[in-house]
Computed example of a mutant assay.
Amino acid sequence: MKKVGIITLFGYNNYGNRLQMYATQKVYKDLGFESEIIKYKQEITYKDPFIIRLKILVRYILFLRTNVVITFLKKLRIKNFKKHAKKYYSESKKYVDPLNIDATFHKSYAFLSVGSDQIWGWFNYNIADLIFLQFTPKEKRITFSPSFGSAIIAEKYSKIYAQGLEGFNNISVRESSGTTIIKEFTNKEATVLCDPTMCVSKADWLTFATSHKKKPTKKYILTYFLGEKSPKVVSLIAELSKEYEIIALNSFNAPKYYAITPSEWVDYINDASLFLTDSFHGVVFSTVLQTPFVVYSRVGGESMQTRISHILEKFNMENRFEISENTASLFIIDFLKTEEIIAIEKLKVYAFLEESIR
Rank of each mutant, 00 (worst) to 15 (best):
T8S: 14
I78N: 11
I142E: 06
T104S: 11
N124E: 03
M1Y: 08
W205S: 04
T327K: 12
A128W: 12
Y88N: 02
K75P: 01
S147V: 11
P231S: 08
V192T: 10
K188P: 11
Q163L: 12
A128R: 07
A248I: 01
T180D: 14
L165Q: 05
I56L: 07
T180K: 15
G227N: 06
K213G: 03
I131V: 15
F123Y: 12
L112N: 01
M317Y: 10
E355D: 14
I181Q: 12
P137T: 04
I56M: 10
K29L: 10
F10L: 06
E354M: 13
V294E: 13
R59S: 08
E264H: 09
S324R: 09
D271E: 15
K107P: 03
N100V: 04
Y88P: 01
F81R: 05
Y157W: 10
P137H: 11
F33E: 01
D30A: 06
M317S: 05
T338D: 06
N319V: 09
Y257T: 03
Y60S: 11
K337Q: 14
W122R: 14
I78C: 09
A85E: 08
F285K: 08
K87Y: 09
I119L: 02
E175Q: 06
G227Y: 08
E245D: 15
S230A: 14
V284F: 04
R307G: 15
V96E: 05
S263N: 09
T143L: 00
K82Q: 15
N80D: 10
F285V: 07
F123N: 11
T306R: 04
E189I: 13
T207P: 02
G32Y: 05
N124Y: 13
I61G: 00
T179C: 08
K82T: 13
Q25A: 03
S356H: 03
V58F: 10
Y88R: 11
Y224S: 05
I221Y: 06
G115E: 10
G16K: 07
